[in-house]
Design a protein around this nucleic acid. Structure first.
Lengths: 231, 231
DNA sequence: CGATATGTTGAAGTTAATCAAATCTTGTGG
DNA sequence: CCACAAGATTTGATTAACTTCAACATATCG
């Protein structure tokens, strides 16, 4: 059976499962199956009974709610390698948010079902991995709360950019993993505001921006803006 | 020994420990000790090595960061019964935020130390309780992100008020568990804006507000505001 | 009862949302 | 490969919301 082995390999790449013994990873893989999503495709909806949690192998996923007037609030954006919806499966019983793919080719692993829950109860070595997964999600939500607590739009954007993985040290290069539309939603601002901020900083010579690629020419300035200086 | 028994009783009142067998609760209690804090007293600081997590028995605790210019960002406010800092102890190793009491008489239980970690490793029945604790914290942070994603200050306040535990059904009565100063910080607005919002809704006859006690006379209006209507 | 901190109110200035339109991209069919 | 349609991004003008600063009122605590 090549399937489970391939899945086991993929699971082994996840930070929280890396440390698990091979036999356990195989056992988990036996409860898993791959899922392929196209951009915008909905994985689950708020209120659905949670029967699995998910790992992101490639692409991206957003977790969001929709307000009565149809606007969507992005709770979290995820990219590989990461997992989500553990708490829904293990504690809540239902998904508290919607989930949808944000990229054309999004590969997930669905882990769950009765067999997983059985395994979780039976094999004690699994719980620490789930604790670790939950902790990671918790940590990123704490950062997200901090981010959103910043009153000024410029501060939120600057902070977000500085936290992105970047190549280059003195002049980090950041690649937007999201459309600007989605990034704006993530940062609780309008696309117009996002555009104007980038323009302003470009004109000031602080960044060099082309498409989804931004060179931070003066990271120190941005740091100051993130900390509340006017930008 | 009355001490551990008293602590065990207190632990048994926590939602996540309620279901644990008595002998395990006693074992956990043996790793715990009570902590009393006065208002404003700091429990731990960001970056401290995490040697314990905590349960709130009475009073209140805020988790927060401080920005370089000295302002504090409240990540979360907690009241009894709840627990916090599990992830710091079990995963991060350090506290990612500051913690301080927000009420004059704040009673906590400190649970941790080498003996707790040993117990956590040795007794498999403990992990599910920790998963459950983490999930709860995660759920409230998701709500917090949603709350903060709302662009309008009025929406944030309305939503917050509607989520508070309230007595009375048609006309819920909400008691502010925080000073207005702290509440404003929690909602990422200035105290002035908070004051003006309450004034406006009072004048419109939607609420009746005296001190820390607010009667929601027209919850439907507030619900509309929370959903983006102008208020 | 006075001192200090907390909450309220007013006026002015700034920021960012909204509305509207132009420009640039991207994907598709011819 | 090009032209076109649909969607995304940018830009401009306007408006509304919120912060800031300052002064005043009210609570709280010794």
């Amino acid at each position: 059976m090549g399937r489970p082995d391939a899945l086991a390999g993929a699971l082994g790449e996840l930070p929280h499962f890396r440390t698990l013994p091979p036999d356990l990873i195989l056992a988990v893989a036996a409860t898993a199956r791959p899922r392929e999503l196209s951009e915008g495709q909905v994985l689950f909806r708020e209120g659905d009974v949670a029967q699995a949690f998910f790992a992101v192998r490639a692409g991206g996923v957003k977790l969001y709610r929709t307000t009565p007037d149809g606007r969507e609030q992005v709770v979290h954006n995820l990219r590989a390698p990461s997992t989500f919806a553990e708490a829904a499966l293990l504690s809540f019983g239902r998904y508290p948010v919607h989930a949808a793919a944000t990229e054309t080719t999004t590969h997930l692993i669905e882990i769950g079902g009765p067999r997983f829950l059985e395994l979780f109860r039976a094999d004690d070595r699994l719980a620490p991995a789930m604790v670790s997964s939950l902790s990671t999600m918790l940590g990123s939500l704490v950062q997200r709360v901090e981010e959103l607590s910043l009153v000024q739009a410029g501060s939120r954007l600057a902070r977000w950019m500085l936290r992105q993985p970047a190549s280059g040290d003195r002049q980090p290069v950041v690649e937007f993993p999201l459309q600007k539309r989605e990034l704006a939603a993530h940062l609780a601002m309008t696309p117009e505001t996002l555009s104007r901020l980038l323009r302003r900083w470009h004109d000031a010579g602080w960044i060099e921006s082309e498409r989804a690629r931004v060179v931070l020419k003066e990271p120190d300035r941005l740091l100051a803006v993130a900390d509340g200086a006017e930008g």
